[in-house]
Amino acid sequence: MAIIEVDAVRKTYAGRPVVDGVSFSVDEGEIFGILGPNGAGKTTTVECVEGLRIPDAGTVKVAGLDPVADHDRVTQLLGAQLQESELQAKLTVREALELYSAFYPAPADWRPLAARLGLEEKLTTRFAKLSGGQKQRLFIALALIGDPKVVVLDELTTGLDPRARRDTWKLIEEIRDGGVTVLLVTHFMEEAQRLCDRIAVIDRGKVVALDTPAGLIRRATGSTVISFVPSRALTGPDLTRLTALPGVASVTPPDSEGTLTLHGTDDSVTPFVALLAELGVTARRLRITGTSLDEAFLDLTEQDA
């Protein structure tokens, strides 16, 4: 069942549509990712879900409620980590956790949460004296402190070291296993691939793809990359035949080491091997790799960028 429904949302700043008809829905217990280049409208979209911005058109529903009209009720079941915000400079970590606990009718206990996020040694440190990553962890704690049913995390692990990042991923998985729905904006493909059940790729205010991570990779053109050094120089007609193989999107001419690269699909591999045999060419240093989500992302968003 959908707990977040975003339907044809538009938001215009200074006559320029920044979010231009975005629709998606997130099921209960799902981790839903939003990917997209800088300025694509990701933050604007999720802040409409949080009720912090008012869409110019379209509707947003969280658990059936309007995040603006029913702001009080939505904030009780939705925890948010904003891409940019601060706390009072001289407020200590402990005071911040206690203060935000007092905002919710049935808050989570902040002590284990602080321990889980590695904040227990910083409890008496003032906000302004925290490092960037420590501030980020505190904001993750504050997003979870109200024991929410939905959490919206805008660039969750930006500024975290690799270990903290992995710990945070584990935490998010645990939270999801507890039945919480997660809406996640990220620039880290590894994060999206590991955590997300589904991903919406947003580019210039529009959803350009919405699929599982594996689906997105499969959908990308040139998702299989074949590279090799031919045992003899290939002639023009040879190259034409390589290019004509099923699924092959492009053939990059030999680089300085003589390596040739083909972008194709799974279907290109067998005909490729057959063609080499027919031409009497052996392929040295042959590598066949699938594309990463990284490349799929670039492929989906690169047009006229």
């Binding site: 009080d72 904030t75 904003l82 915000s85 009072q88 905002f103 109200g146």
Partner: peptide
């Protein structure tokens, strides 16, 4: 400063 630094905004995302 509370407004400029997004402190009020962060609070808008809570029930208070």
């Amino acid at each position: 400063a509370y407004r400029e630094r997004g402190i009020l905004r962060r609070m808008s995302a809570t029930p208070v």
